[in-house]
């Protein structure tokens, strides 16, 4: 247990080991440690960011889905409305057509009636003329009485 040169020797050894540690041991281990720490921190960051993104995306998807559903209902409603409108229009048209047909038929009938009446009138007037000729036995100047006869026929 004497103090001797071992003291100096030990100090020199100590200095060499510390120097070696500073130069070759500490930096790689410390660097690796800190880099890994950074990597892990980045990874955690990225994970939380990703989950946030996911949440956002899910929200967006839900929003889109809701919108499209709404649109679909709107389109369906419109289509329904359009369909009923079309049916209504068709019905209206059909009715109008029917009425028109009825009206034209009626007017035709009326024309027919008029024509028949006219014919009848002419025939009656000529018949009356014939009758009157027979009655009078005398020749009636057709030209002289024509006007009177026409007036008579118009009155029929």
């Amino acid at each position: 247990m004497n103090i001797n040169m071992t003291l100096i020797g030990q100090t020199i050894a100590f200095a060499i080991f510390v120097w070696f540690c500073i130069k070759y041991v500490w930096p790689p281990i410390s660097n690796a440690l800190h880099e890994r720490q950074k990597k892990i921190a980045d990874g955690l960051d990225a994970a939380s960011r990703a989950s946030r993104d996911l949440e956002l995306a899910q929200e967006q998807a839900a929003e889109t889905l809701r919108e499209s559903k709404q649109q679909a209902t709107e389109i369906l409603e419109q289509a329904n409305k359009r369909a009923s409108q079309m049916i209504e229009e068709a019905r209206e048209q059909a009715r109008a057509e029917g009425e028109r047909l009825v009206a034209s038929a009626r007017s035709e009938i009326e024309q027919e009636v008029h024509r028949a009446k006219d014919e009848l009138r002419v025939q009656v007037s000529s018949l009356a003329l014939v009758g009157a000729e027979r009655v009078l036995e005398a020749s009636i100047d057709e030209k002289a009485h024509r006007e009177m006869l026409d007036k008579l026929a118009a009155e029929l």
């Binding site: 071992t6 003291l7 030990q10 100090t11 200095a15």
Partner: peptide, 10 residues
Amino acid sequence: PNATLGMALG
């Protein structure tokens, strides 16, 4: 003690 005092000296 040489060893411990040696390091302490450092």
